[in-house]
């Protein structure tokens, strides 16, 4: 878990307003290869907005984005995908009537001439799932409609991994899952980091965060309240950071925290 080395993705001084509403204030945020960065914050803190800025869905007002140390400009979801940034949205965006392999390659099908190259897609889908040690899905030719919530989440994550992605962002991946399925997804998140991906995990569940994250970034009303190593903080400190923006000597200066309310 080395902290040194360039982050895969680094945001510096990001600002974003929707009309008169200033939603993100000078956000600094970094994603390191092989590490899970948890992004926490109360409802409306700006987590999803920050993700959408990274995804190229929202343009930023100011600030810089560095990828592998180089400044980049992400103007559209396609730019993000081209850099190797994949996002697993909370509402999974899988087509129920297609099978697992078809979903994993959706929109980026392999072709032989004008014809779909089913064989190579099926094999690649199977290899990717096997690489992630997914043990709950029996056939990649199974329709997604017949999968459980956790299995769907697994497919959505595997889809993100299939594309030689370097950064995988997961927006509340365990929100709708039961105990056993949450377990599977958290294991998968860890395995993503072990295979060298930079992982961003958005979650409201402190147990999940403390279990898999290497770093925790707490947002408070659109500002970074703290960006700390997991081992340096306790549950209750993080909860305090989320709810009040500060905790002991961590967090925003009292004046800033008060002024942003």
């Amino acid at each position: 878990m080395s902290e040194n080395g360039t982050p895969t993705l680094e945001l510096v001084g990001i600002n974003k307003s929707f009309g008169a509403v200033h939603v993100l204030h000078d956000i600094d945020f970094a994603v390191y290869p092989g590490q899970v960065s948890a992004l926490v914050g109360d409802n409306g803190a700006g987590k999803s907005t920050l993700i959408k800025c990274i995804a190229g869905i929202h343009p930023t007002d100011s600030g810089r984005v560095l990828f592998d140390g180089r400044p980049v400009n992400i103007g559209s979801p396609r730019d993000a995908a081209a850099l190797g940034i994949e996002i697993v949205y909370q509402d999974l965006a899988l087509a129920d009537n297609l099978d697992i392999a078809q979903n994993m390659f959706l929109g980026r099908e392999r072709k032989k001439g004008i014809v779909l190259d089913e064989a190579s897609m099926e094999q690649a889908a199977r290899e990717t799932l096997a690489k992630l040690s997914v043990r709950t899905v029996k056939s990649v030719r199974q329709q997604v409609a017949s999968l459980s919530g956790g299995q769907r989440q697994t497919v959505a994550i595997a889809k993100a991994v299939l594309w030689e992605s370097k950064v995988v962002i997961l927006d509340e991946p365990t929100a709708a899952l039961g105990v056993a399925q949450t377990r599977q997804v958290l294991d998968l998140v860890r395995r993503l980091a072990e295979t060298g991906h930079g992982v961003v995990l958005i979650s409201h569940n402190m147990n999940d965060v403390f279990e898999v994250a290497d770093r925790i970034t707490a947002l408070y009303l659109g500002r970074v309240a703290a960006d700390v190593k997991r081992s340096d903080v306790t549950h209750s400190q993080v909860v305090e950071l989320i709810t009040t923006g500060r905790s002991g000597d961590l967090g925003l200066a009292p004046s800033t925290a008060a002024e942003s309310i």
Partner: peptide, 24 residues
Amino acid sequence: SRTPYGRHVYAVGGNAEAARRAGI
């Protein structure tokens, strides 16, 4: 059943939002 176009028709019919996010 054999072309990407056909696959995309099924995808849009199954989940248009998923298809849109997949770049279709």
